[in-house]
Structure formats: structure tokens, C-alpha cells
Nucleic acid binder design. Structure first.
Length: 256
DNA sequence: ATGGCCAACTATGTTGGA
């Protein structure tokens, strides 16, 4: 089985690319999507099901929005973070192939002096509590998504350009470490990986061509899954596509 | 040079993303 996460930056624009990528990756069990940017009433459920997939989603107009697409039915779908009153649609979870698959679009934070930054840190605290609860129930669990956190300096093309800003601040990195402390591990770093591996590149300034990116999309997995982990990686192909998302898919494979 | 691009909205500029 194989799981992946992809921030598509508008599913309206990217649906053809998502379906194309799913067709090109027939071994993929489930895909977590972020920034679908659409209300549930206009979500392309019929098109996705017509292509042979199951899907669960929750979204809003213009901003945020998450979905899980899977090759088998989704069970026990959870919408939003339980007990946290937040109009922003950032979390959906479901059980697929015996794995609790959580799809999260963690807030960006905008800037350290923005009101969105404490929102991000508070949100991460709530996520931590939710994770602790879920981990007690699900030995096989994946937290997949756009974390908007580059965990280490090697996850940043040029740390001098990002130091002192969001995505790399000590408090955000600590929140990432706190999730690891719950018993999770970064599927990408379980293997030797190429230097300068990133999952996001700014649309501006030929960033992708220059590989001036960040690794901010992650799959954190439980020990029961780490035991079964066979490979992990980042698929840069969709980022080369015409009219791409600024993020590209990140994946992990497991023995059945 | 504190920008550059892209998407969405109901817009012909503004906001948010990262």
C-alpha cells in the first residue's frame, strides 16, 4: 500500500492533474489533498467517483479545504478537529486499508507578528491533543499534509532567506518535534534522500528551475507502519506540468 | 529593489499563499 499528500492549490484548476497523477500511480492506496478551495456543493465528487475512486471532503469558498481520495471505501470519516470551533476547513480523517489516514492543512501563519501566527501555534496544540487521542486507538496512523513547517535547516534551500520568518521559527519546529515525541516519525527521513529535497517552490523567480524550495509537506507515521515502510519520496513530476500547483506530491510505501 | 507568481473574488484591484 502507498499513501501520498498533495497541496493542489485549487482543485478546480488541478482536478485533471490529480486524476492524471492517480492514473499514473496505480499502486496508490489513498491521496490526501489540501487547499481544494471549494464548497462541498461544487466538489467534483461525481468526476472522481467516475474515475473509480472513493472520496471524502470538506471545504469552503476561496480558502483551505481538504479531501481524501482512495481506491477503496473510506470508513469512519472525521471532519475537522473535534471540540475545536474553527470555521477554517483544514482537517479530514478516514480509515483506509486498516490505516487511520489524517489529512491536515496546517495554518501558514503569514508572519511572526501576524495574528495568524498565534492562531497557527494554538491550532498545532489542538492537533497534538487530537493526535494523542487518535494514537491511543489506531496503531496504524498517518498524519499527512501541508504542515507549513520546514523541520530542519536542510529542508530549506537557503536558510538565510527564511530565518526569522514563519515555517522555520523555533516554536513551529518545536511543535513538529512535539508531534514526533508522541511516537510518530517522518517517513521521508526514514531513508537516505537526495540533498535539497523539497516539496514546495515559489511560483516567482524560477524557483523550481533553481530548486529554491522548502520541504513542508510530510507524512508522519506510527511505529507499526515504520516497521512496514519500504520506501518514501517526493514526486517532482507534477511540478513540471503546465499550470502546476506550487506543491508536489509526497508519498510513502508499505508492505501489506 | 522587501518585488517577482498564481488563484479567487465580482474584481479591472485586493488578499492570501509560503
Amino acid at each position: 500500500m502507498r499513501f501520498a499528500t498533495w497541496n493542489v492549490n485549487s482543485l478546480k484548476v488541478r482536478l485533471p492533474q490529480v486524476l492524471e497523477w492517480l492514473a499514473a500511480n496505480p499502486d496508490l492506496t489513498a491521496l490526501a489533498l489540501q487547499e481544494t478551495k471549494m464548497e462541498d456543493a461544487v466538489f467534483p465528487q461525481a468526476e472522481i467517483e467516475a474515475a473509480g475512486f472513493h472520496v471524502a471532503y470538506i471545504g469552503q469558498k476561496t480558502y483551505n479545504g481538504v479531501a481524501i481520495i482512495a481506491r477503496e471505501p473510506l470508513a469512519d470519516v472525521q471532519y475537522n478537529l473535534p471540540g475545536y470551533d474553527d470555521p477554517q476547513k483544514r482537517v479530514i480523517a478516514a480509515t483506509v486499508a486498516g490505516v487511520r489516514f489524517i489529512c491536515a492543512y496546517i495554518p501558514n501563519g503569514q508572519a511572526l507578528d501576524s495574528e495568524k501566527y498565534p492562531y497557527k501555534l494554538g491550532w498545532l496544540k489542538v492537533m497534538q491533543g487530537y493526535l494523542a487521542d487518535e494514537l491511543a486507538r489506531h496503531p496504524q496512523l498517518i498524519l499527512a499534509g501541508d504542515y507549513n513547517i520546514a523541520p530542519e535547516d536542510r529542508d530549506v534551500h537557503d536558510i538565510s532567506k527564511w530565518e526569522g520568518g514563519v515555517l522555520v521559527s523555533p516554536a513551529e519546529r518545536q511543535a513538529f518535534q512535539d508531534m514526533l515525541s508522541l511516537g510518530l516519525s517522518d517517513a521521508f527521513r526514514a531513508f537516505e534522500q537526495p540533498d535539497k529535497s523539497f516539496s514546495w517552490w515559489d511560483y516567482r523567480g524560477f524557483s523550481f528551475k533553481k530548486n529554491a524550495g522548502l520541504r513542508i509537506d510530510h507524512l508522519l507515521i506510527t511505529p507499526a507502519l515504520t516497521e512496514k515502510l519500504t520506501a518514501s519520496g517526493i514526486d517532482r513530476e507534477p511540478r513540471k506540468h503546465e499550470r502546476p500547483s506550487d506543491h508536489t506530491p509526497v508519498w510513502a510505501s508499505f508492505r501489506d
